[in-house]
């Protein structure tokens, strides 16, 4: 399995690498910072070099979210089998940056967004990023607790967007992040 988490523009690549080293003891040498082309040249020059667990940078991205972290199964093993959304949440809290990841559905503009308060929910991007890799928010599919200014649109017929017909729920990857009592935000579905 390969996955990609895209953090907000300006997120420090070294801060992400350091966060993975501090929280999960992911060896820094297993995280490559640079473009895919640079990585390819390096791999060609050094035939004995193992493929890194994660690549920060990779393919060019632009827009509000442009700092890409690509990982695969080995990284998931190294972080103790966390889900991708939980890993993104940890890194978002560490860096203070919001991040996007795939929502598991067929609609190519729909992503899951995680915010530094530990919340995640689904958002729609302004353009089809599968043609032009520009990641700008358009609207959310439910209120975003940490940013009520993001417009919310209730799309019809969302069950058809997902292979199993189950619409992913917004919420918190870690129980300790959930607001307590009646002051809980309306963002949870």
């Amino acid at each position: 399995m390969i996955f990609e988490i895209i953090f907000e523009r300006g997120t420090s690549a070294t801060a992400l690498r350091d966060a993975m080293a501090e929280r999960f003891a992911v060896p820094s040498e297993s995280v490559f910072i640079g473009t895919t082309d640079e990585l390819e040249r390096l791999l060609l020059d050094r035939k004995d070099m193992p493929y890194p667990m994660a690549v920060i940078g990779g393919e060019p991205r632009s827009g509000e979210f442009s700092c890409s972290l690509t990982g695969h199964d080995q990284l998931i093993e190294a972080v103790g089998g966390l889900s991708v959304v939980a890993l993104a949440t940890v890194l978002s809290k560490s860096t203070g940056a919001r991040a996007l990841l795939g929502d598991g559905g067929y609609v190519s503009e729909c992503f899951t967004m995680v915010t530094p308060d530990g919340w995640h929910g689904r958002v729609m991007l302004a353009d089809d990023v599968l043609d032009e890799p520009v990641f700008n928010l358009d609207y959310a599919l439910q209120p975003v607790p940490s940013d009520p200014s993001i417009p919310v649109v209730e799309e019809a017929h969302q069950k058809g967007w997902y292979p199993d017909g189950e619409v992913p729920e917004a919420g918190y990857a870690f129980p300790e992040d959930e607001p307590e009592g009646p002051s809980a935000p309306d963002g949870r579905e």
Binding site: G102, D103, Y106, S108, V129, D131, P133
Partner: peptide
């Protein structure tokens, strides 16, 4: 439907972390 769903256009897509 988007042209990325055509088999021969697949190389042009820019994000692979979706089924």
């Amino acid at each position: 439907p988007h042209s990325r769903h055509r088999l021969r256009k697949v190389a042009k897509s820019k994000y692979v972390d979706k089924e």
